[in-house]
Design a protein around this nucleic acid. Structure first.
Lengths: 246, 246
DNA sequence: TTCGGAATTGACGTCTTGTCAAACATTGAC
DNA sequence: GTCAATGTTTGACAAGACGTCAATTCCGAA
């Protein structure tokens, strides 16, 4: 029993190291620079051993994605637990997404690649389901805030509009804005020097459009954001700032 | 002179055929199924000849992207020329994006791939600039509608907010929603059966949030959308419907 | 017909993924 | 301590992709 569990621990340990190296290669040399051979070479294991852990390269990527998504879900839960008005809690989740992309810049590439049908197809149902579960739980966290807002009278939704509609709106806008900001080259040429600030404005306007009180001109949400960054996510925002400097 | 131009025509013709085949392979076998060897095999040319036209595989992809983007820009311009209130013209451009992704489903994969840094790096400045130019012109078209709205009093923007901010909001939301809808598997599990309808609602709410008149509850924009689809984009919407059936 | 430059070819070098038989290590029974 | 059985690790190998380039073919002009 003891020896078995030691073996198991060794296997888990090595799996973690594989992902560590994979992430490092991804950060340093991009997607092109990530290969099973190179991971094996760095870790001084043979390629065969790699394939004992992950049946294909795509599985490594999806495992990497899931690792990061677990952290993101945790951050979302911290954000949703912020003690404040419902709309402030929503802002906290928005800040969580931004800090997440700053802290895990490689995750963006990973998600871009993993979502390609020809890559997705090769992954295992087990890990696919894990990823879906993370996605659903993130939606549920934000959806919960929306429901709280309705319950406490901060907002009314017309019949036919479910809380998930707002979640989808914020999700798509945030995802889209970060995607474009990360990959598009000509934004500042088009008069968009600070896409993050513009994203914040648009998020506010969208939520205003749903009549979620207090509306953006009735309340100092800038102060809310600063407070959240310095309390709930103080460690994360310091780490992100440090990374920005480097 | 005459013979030279005939040669040139032959070259252009072949280039078009290469892109045709590349698109077909992409649609039928996904990104994984697209290779230079296979294009050459289908066209019964040698691989070397392929590389006379495109210096690498990435160039083929970017050429494909630019081909589609030219069509999209054209569609945007048609949309913006719709004779109606400014907000109706905006809706026309939204419909144009949707029809575009329905008519060029492969373009989505292409853009996803081309935006990967390790792919983008290998492309030529010439084609990169072309892509950037298409992007900027699309922004300019929508930006023009926003400016018209301000000029005719349909909307006021606070100081510090440029028309491009709204463009970015709509762009990111639409891009994000379509991305998620195309690649995410668990949407209907999360209560989002019809992401396109939800996108429309969110676009309306965002524009409402900017106070662009007439607001969504003051006007029948559903009717506008139907009219646009049956007039400006009647050919495109019929083609998209036919493709949906298949 | 012949010549010279341009276009075309496909074998080749290199890299990557994923497999598998053989070598090696570990365990538990005696 | 020995040994067989079981599990693990290895690296050579097959398959397939990209991109190159020397050799060949083609073609128009003289």
């Amino acid at each position: 029993m003891k020896t078995l569990s030691r073996k198991q621990r060794e296997v888990q340990e090595r799996e973690a190291r594989i992902l560590e190296v994979a992430q490092e290669l991804l950060v340093q040399h991009g997607y092109h620079g990530l290969s099973m051979d190179r991971i094996a070479e760095v870790l001084e294991y043979s390629k065969g051993t790699m394939y004992q852990h992950f049946s294909c390269k795509e599985e490594v990527l999806l495992a990497l994605a899931n690792q990061a998504l677990a952290v993101r879900l945790q951050m979302f839960r911290c954000a949703a637990a912020y003690r404040g008005r419902t709309r402030e809690r929503l802002i906290a989740t928005g800040l969580a997404s931004e800090l997440f992309v700053k802290l895990f810049p490689h995750h963006f590439t990973v998600e871009q690649v993993i979502r390609l049908p020809s890559v997705w197809e090769k992954t295992s149902p087990r890990r696919r389901d894990a990823m879906r579960a993370f996605e659903m739980q993130c939606i549920a966290v934000i959806g919960g805030i929306v429901r709280d807002a309705i319950a406490c009278g901060d907002m009314e939704l017309p019949t036919g509009t479910s809380p998930e509609h707002i979640v989808f709106g914020l999700w798509s806008m945030t995802f889209g804005a970060l995607s474009i900001a990360m990959t598009s080259v000509s934004l500042s040429d088009a008069g968009l020097q600070d896409p993050l600030a513009v994203l914040h404005e648009n998020q506010s306007r969208l939520v205003d459009g749903y009549g979620w009180r207090p509306l953006s001109h009735e309340y100092d949400y800038q102060a809310t954001a600063e407070k959240i960054l310095s309390t709930v996510f103080s460690a994360e925002s310091r780490a992100a700032a440090a990374r920005n400097r480097a």
